[in-house]
Design a protein around this nucleic acid. Sequence first.
DNA 1: TTGGTTCTAATATGGACGTATTGTCAACGC
DNA 2: GCGTTGACAATACGTCCATATTAGAACCAA
Lengths: 208, 208
Amino acid sequence: MAREEYHALRRRQVAEAVERLVAAHGLDGVTVAKTAAEAGVSVGLVQHYFASKDDLLRYAYTQLTERTLARAIEQAEELDRHRSRIQQALAHALAERLPLDEPRRAEWRVAFAFATRAVDNPNLAAVRNHTEAQIRARLAQAISNGKKCGEVRNHTDPDTQASRLLAHLDGLALHTYLDPTALPASAALAALHDYLSGIFPGRCRAHD
Amino acid sequence: MAREEYHALRRRQVAEAVERLVAAHGLDGVTVAKTAAEAGVSVGLVQHYFASKDDLLRYAYTQLTERTLARAIEQAEELDRHRSRIQQALAHALAERLPLDEPRRAEWRVAFAFATRAVDNPNLAAVRNHTEAQIRARLAQAISNGKKCGEVRNHTDPDTQASRLLAHLDGLALHTYLDPTALPASAALAALHDYLSGIFPGRCRAHD
DNA sequence: TTGGTTCTAATATGGACGTATTGTCAACGC
DNA sequence: GCGTTGACAATACGTCCATATTAGAACCAA
């Protein structure tokens, strides 16, 4: 294995340990020593691969956002290949972001922990805003496509609706996460579908 | 001043110092020593009035939620007295929860910090869920009133819509808070109004 | 072989923090 | 008057943490 590959691999191993710790005990529960133990390495190794704890957290967060974004894109493209309605494709892709079951709940927990810390941490904020901008752009593109296709009304503004959709999604996710009795996962999913129906009231006139 | 009053006053003074610290430096920035300094008292005093740091935070959070809830209710009742449309009254009351300007941003920051910590802290979670339930109930009541009045469609389910409305609101607040460039405060407010228009499409047939 | 990086580990350091302990002083009941 | 209790302050204690330091092992170059 090339030296560089090895380097990247090690960093990923440690970053994954961070994720597990955040999922289990929150961001406050992450310490360098615990991370090293979780990854089965020494503190020195962690220090060798990361200049500081902040550096470590930033890397872990970047890793996480890139992975989830890639998965969402893949989801959307998969459904696109099957010529589903845009609304359907979005519903599936966005549902990935809802804490519907335990694995997704854990992922959301980690992503959210980082997002909130990003408020006071410009490094993390940069990572978050970059990813969010990508997602928003893709959503806007999807809505724009919907207009050409006839699923979306002509006077709909893609950028505005994309922002609102994302906010709505995260609001549902937040509430389901914080108090699942008040907003059960199924209710959140139903709300997402209804909201999407509001943006995509029509039928696609034709596929190609 | 009665013994008990004095006691309550002291506790409030300290809790207010906690709020200022959270607003300025986040929940992580709150230490017992800093709280004492901010309140202009000694560490011993804080210890005297609060059994533990957790106790202190719980009290501060309770204080905060009660105050904001009372303000929202007052807002709504004020507008009710002026016989505004229910939609208008809700719009005003709910806008209080959006980080539209610096003071509200600071308040939201504090409330949000506690809400997120509530995930790992059953004590704080109890405080949060209790308040949220009250708000949801009032929203549902407002929507229900809207049905009787003709502002709301007959097939609308008040509880469901109240939950979704609250989630939407918090999603907007969250996004505006985390990245005001992506979702400016004005856009969040506009989104809230549009969303409310969806629930309240009609006109009130009559007042009394 | 020698010498120098790179990788990994163990341990040291210094600071921050929550809380316990102790002391002081005033008010109050007896 | 005198002990007791409540309000407050100062400081001590023990823990945890990020990071610095030091040391050794592995590998490659000269």
